[in-house]
């Protein structure tokens, strides 16, 4: 899934998201410690690390989903295209339309497949009429590789799909709002290997248009889908670099211990 050509290209692309000295507290717990990272556009970046290391927390900082948790406090600078996303003038709702998110457990709305995908475009006013909305829904479902399975049952409930289909529906829902960044929080952890393969293939395709960040517990998955990998341990970013290098030639002994299965 990776080849040198793409890697060279991505290396030249601009930085999409930049984090500087980010600290996150849950109440008194220091969950993220001084994380600085630059995430490139049109690249799949994987966050790996043992459970509780803060990778999901950091992911949720990027679209300010942590705002919904009362006791959560974020410090430091995170920019999207050079703009501070924690600036008081930024409306998190507008930010989330630009930074889509796919969650660990497939969570389609208990509505029809069509309404699931159409919900985002509807509330953001992306379609002027029904025909445009239909087009957005079809495109999103096609890009999420769900169109062929779902086109005849658009009005049936999204919750009636299989787990893998549901997750692809959630991806379709996320890309329907035309985001610039797609955050995926362990999107395959509830899926079987076949569904996982489908979603991974999809992630690889999405890379052509988006900056994708994927949190995963599976190092094989990180190796398969990502171009760059960040290893988190106990709230700190231990090592960040090209996936190939991280997995073949880690600099930090903790990274090596994790990828060889000695910690985690």
């Amino acid at each position: 899934m990776k080849d040198m050509l793409i890697e060279e290209r991505t290396a030249m692309e601009d930085v999409k998201i930049s984090a500087k000295d980010v600290n996150v507290w849950y109440g008194d717990t220091h969950a993220i410690k001084d994380v600085s990272v630059e995430i490139k556009d049109k690249t799949v970046t994987a966050f790996i690390g043992p459970s509780g290391c803060g990778k999901s927390t950091f992911l949720r900082c990027i679209n300010r989903m942590n705002d919904t948790i009362d006791i959560c406090r974020v410090e430091g600078l995170i920019t999207l295209d050079g703009q501070d996303i924690y600036d008081p003038k930024v409306d998190p709702v507008q930010l989330r339309a630009k930074v889509g998110m796919v969650f660990q457990k497939p969570n389609p709305f208990p509505k029809s497949i069509y309404d699931n995908v159409a919900y985002g475009p509807r509330i953001h006013g992306l379609a002027r009429n029904k025909a445009e909305l239909d087009e957005i829904v079809e495109n999103s479902l096609r890009r999420a590789a769900l169109w062929n399975e779902a086109k005849d049952r658009l009005q049936s409930p999204g919750t009636g799909l299989s787990g893998g289909q549901q997750q692809r529906l959630c991806i379709a829902r996320a890309i329907a709002t035309e985001p610039e960044v797609l955050l995926m929080d362990e999107p395959c952890s509830a899926l079987d290997p076949i569904a996982t393969a489908q979603v991974e293939e999809l992630i690889d395709e999405l890379r052509t248009s988006y900056s994708v960040i994927i949190v995963t517990h599976s190092m094989q998955q990180a190796a398969r889908v990502s171009q760059r990998t960040a290893f988190f341990h106990l709230g700190s970013l231990v090592e960040y670099g090209e996936t190939d290098r991280i997995f073949t030639n880690p600099v930090d002994p903790r990274t090596e211990a994790y990828i060889t299965g000695r910690i985690g």
Binding site: N63, M65, T68, V93, Q94, R96, A97, G100, M101, V102, F103, K105, N107, P108, F109, P110, Y119, G120, I123, H124, C170, R173, A174, A176, T177
Partner: peptide, 24 residues
Amino acid sequence: SIRDAALGVGASKMQSVFHHVLPL
């Protein structure tokens, strides 16, 4: 997860409550 889903596609708090949570 339903609230997260709604917020994740950029719904406001009120939209997530009235469109998704309340019907359920």
